[in-house]
Design a protein around this nucleic acid. Sequence first.
DNA 1: TACTAATATGGAAACGATTTCAATAAAGAT
DNA 2: ATCTTTATTGAAATCGTTTCCATATTAGTA
Lengths: 342, 342
Amino acid sequence: MENEKVTIEVVAARAGVGIATVSRAINNSGGISSKTKAKVLEAVEELGFIPNSYAQNLKLRQTKQIALAVPDIRNAFIPEIAYSVEQVAKHYGYRVVQINTLGNIRSELELLRDMKKLHVDGLIILPLAYPETLKDLINKARLPISIINYGKKLDTDIKADIVSLSTQEGQLVMEHLISIGRTRIGYAGAPKDIIEERFYAYEDALDQIDRSLVYFGDDFSLQTGAKAADYFVNLTHMPDAIYAGNDMVAVGLLNRFKELGIRVPEDIAIVGVDNNLLCTITTPKISSVSIMGAEVAKVATELLLQRIHEQKKGLYERVQFEPRLIVRESSLARTHITQRIE
Amino acid sequence: MENEKVTIEVVAARAGVGIATVSRAINNSGGISSKTKAKVLEAVEELGFIPNSYAQNLKLRQTKQIALAVPDIRNAFIPEIAYSVEQVAKHYGYRVVQINTLGNIRSELELLRDMKKLHVDGLIILPLAYPETLKDLINKARLPISIINYGKKLDTDIKADIVSLSTQEGQLVMEHLISIGRTRIGYAGAPKDIIEERFYAYEDALDQIDRSLVYFGDDFSLQTGAKAADYFVNLTHMPDAIYAGNDMVAVGLLNRFKELGIRVPEDIAIVGVDNNLLCTITTPKISSVSIMGAEVAKVATELLLQRIHEQKKGLYERVQFEPRLIVRESSLARTHITQRIE
DNA sequence: TACTAATATGGAAACGATTTCAATAAAGAT
DNA sequence: ATCTTTATTGAAATCGTTTCCATATTAGTA
């Protein structure tokens, strides 16, 4: 290993030039003859010089870091988002630090302060809800921000790029369930969440809704699914299909139903949302709506990085993706099932 | 919002003291009267001063960051590790940057260089294999390092703290399978991986091994499991139990067997390794060996942080955890099954 | 009260880069 | 060959901290 600390100064000495020249050489800043540049680069190579990024950051006041603020990692679709953000960021030479908002953005100051402490060049935020305070926070923050929006449509005057998934997941599910001839459709999920919109779609799709067919648990988990199954089974008049707020709930439902001897999809069809890997390993495989996490996150990140680079001020983008229904065994039409089983 | 940049200097001015005093106040460095300290802290509060961490890092040459080098995130047990590391690190005020070694630590220089570029205070590495070059790399790196070892026993002269899981996973599985009366036990997995040890355990447990009962796929994935199932089914003399190298393979096996009308565990028992969530949502639920990811990672992180803090030089720790078998439905004893089914 | 010892405080250097600006070397024009 | 003009170069300032060191203050002792 080379001698302890090899700074720009020792490189300069080795190359027999001034430190400014070294800086120019390694940053392609021009104003340097190709001869000296080569000489410097050689010295850099020999010594294995790596610029101290903290010194750079101090001077340049840009950190090549962005923050990704997500609510609770337990939400199964977060990893997909995080991975995608990471990929894009890395491609552009940015690092991403992930912070957990735990759902409650406690106060404007707090997040703002955190951002400062982190010294990030920009922020991608995936909020659970959109209280007025959050909007204020975003508009006042002097920081490029991209919002990943899986909730309802946002105010137009938010000073951030916004990439959303149109809230059609629920509609897709309901239309599908109706199209395969189901008439008593239930809903299972949690009442308040980023994805509460999914429940509204349930209501919208039905002429009149039977509250007994709606089960609200504490969260969007396997447990909630299992409890929901217990609930539905005890109904005098069971549903013939269930729209699960996400795939964890769908899996929970499915497995409990199986334990109880209820056949899916013969007795009850199930459709989830997220298109999680889990959907493909259960028996039967579960139909689900893809929420395009990777794509949404990719665009959000690109928009942010662009804004950072171009120091763009206004002109905030609004991009919208559409969810896609993927039909699997848990919601086959009865005709199809008969054929298949026979 | 306050005026653009509030540095230690403006705090000093506001409090009517020198900058050195401010530094002392915010760092509890002592040598300051509690009266002035209070005064300074008040100014800090009023102005919402946050120290510039890049300036701090530059001066202190410690970054409060550690790196976590893992091979490919697709390995299902990585997230558990990463999460655990993150938790502990955060608790001690450290940030963790995750880097993907993609399995091949290309060259000493490369990783070393990366480490330097990252400016981390320490490194947690989870290597796929332990070539001599890696050992050299670790021994030459002047950086606190913790190794998470899921492979075979490491050389004792590695200058790093090592937290391992004793490679008993395979033994546990085999003993269990034998204890429930299985006699033709197969293996499914990939030949070369961090966890190749798991296969050796298979060999060790058997008096003589029948090569036709060993299936090696490309990786430890669902697909490999499915292909393995196809392979075993076409054997003239099928196995009555399969030890899957990890849970992904186990799930792949299970689902394909079900498609082929083979009953688990009646016809074939399956046991996996990792104790992934997946094991609990399949039907039947899959027996698996917990590899204690969270615990192992926690200790590895604590050891690293300790070493960083105390600037400990020698005296490298060796900690070993034991895997735990969790028996579920996929490997119930036949007697038990009969009872249960009846 | 006077003098020493201990404690507080502020000035300035240092950390390692980038960048402005003035000086120098090279090139071009007459 | 001499004078401009232009391209290279390096010295010094700067970014925002921490910390050493010298000084000013306070407390303690006789």
